[in-house]
Amino acid sequence: MRFLTFLLLLAFIVLGVLFGALNPDLVSFDFGVTRLMLPKGAVLLAVLVLGWLLGGLTAWWGTRWRKTRDRHAAAHGIRKDRAGK
């Protein structure tokens, strides 16, 4: 399974590099305060990676928040149980 994941990752990296190499032409990006000329393929890849990271971060925060909430609820339940004894 791990080897398969590795192969898939390798394939995507190769595709990414290939995509960057096939789209080397510069595109103008206007950020309001400044204008930048950046390679089309590289920008596309960078934005994809950024989106992927943001998605991961959101999921991680979500899980963490849920666990903290469960822990507080469990602690409250124990205290209530022991008080009601």
Partner: peptide
């Protein structure tokens, strides 16, 4: 426009993997 369409896709895939 292509980037605009791919960003949500990348976001979703990152979210799914982390989850």
């Amino acid at each position: 426009y292509l980037m605009g369409a791919l960003i949500p896709l990348a976001f979703l895939s990152g979210w799914w993997v982390a989850r």
